[in-house]
Design a protein around this nucleic acid. Structure first.
Ligand SMILES: [Mn+2]
Ligand SMILES: [Mn+2]
Ligand SMILES: [Zn+2]
Ligand SMILES: [Zn+2]
Lengths: 150, 150
DNA sequence: TATTAAACGATAATTGTTATCGAAAAGTCA
DNA sequence: TGACTTTTCGATAACAATTATCGTTTAATA
């Protein structure tokens, strides 16, 4: 059972946006609700398609701009810190990763560096697992030394 | 200590490429060796920069083509299956992912679905971890039903 | 070495994303 | 509420990462 994300009512949304420093527009409300409802980790395109039912005149640029605003405000995240460019893996051994979210560095962690991951239940509906790996996200030494020039 | 990737000598390379169905070209040899040496999970651009020292006339297109060929042959992999496009995460709880490498579907796994991940050693040099998550890669039910139309 | 198939380099095309800008809507405060 | 200021919107241009095209060069085969 998924943790039920209650769809925030209008006055709750007003507060959320206020605290995020985002003024409340119709497009934003519809976009935010759409993203919260879609539990499929949607792409900008997928959100665009979905939201066009409600606001046919909305522009793809507006979708991107607001997604970015939501991310900057911490209302949503991106699934992968490497979505911008392909990164190659030449280490074919089973292993794990340490990922710096600032400089995008990726460092290997040997499989033997951690205890084997153990599932407590069956995986949902017939998913066939090839491999798994653990991703530790954070800041590398160099990046956490530098000031947060956001 | 990293598992030392021995740089394959020429006759070993000849065999690797033969088995992968790739004819042996100078560009390929240099590219493959570069990727194996670079343990930083390099981007195509980074590989390009590196290889230009040895083959100044090489084209970025050739880098992309051969990376693709290496991936198709299973000689290297891509770090993230979602590097093509941004995917949004609206579930701010700690959780994990089931990822279908065919259709790119991403399904949440609750934190409580697996035993906590435990490290056996200290993390290398001052890395500060914000969060971690486990990614299970494989084929979803729908995709593993369908034939492999590659 | 001649023939054939595959790969290369240059460059055009595509795709995902961001920037620009005038018009429209939202925030502010009397 | 209305005048004024600030922000956002939609349209579209610009960019960046990646793939496709194509004539030339190189490798595989015998
Ligand atoms: Mn790795
Ligand atoms: Mn998720
Ligand atoms: Zn870093
Ligand atoms: Zn699938």
């Amino acid at each position: 059972m998924q943790p039920t994300t209650v769809m925030p009512p209008m006055d709750e949304l007003r507060k959320v946006f206020r605290e995020a420093g985002l003024s409340l527009t119709h497009q934003r409300v519809v976009l935010y609700r759409a993203v919260l409802e879609m539990r499929s980790h949607p792409s900008p395109e997928a959100i665009y398609e979905r939201v066009r039912d409600e606001i046919p005149s909305i522009s793809l640029g507006t979708v991107y701009k607001n997604i970015r605003a939501f991310m900057d405000a911490g209302l949503v995240r991106e699934v992968s810190p490497h979505h911008g460019t392909l990164r190659l893996e030449s280490n074919l051994e089973e292993h794990h990763h340490l990922v710096c979210t600032r400089c995008k560095a990726i460092v290997d962690l040997e499989e033997s560096d951690l205890e084997p991951v153990r599932l407590r239940r069956e995986l949902p509906g017939g998913f066939r697992v090839d491999r798994y790996s653990v991703e530790f996200r954070g800041l590398c030494a160099a990046c956490s030394a530098k000031p947060d020039l956001s």
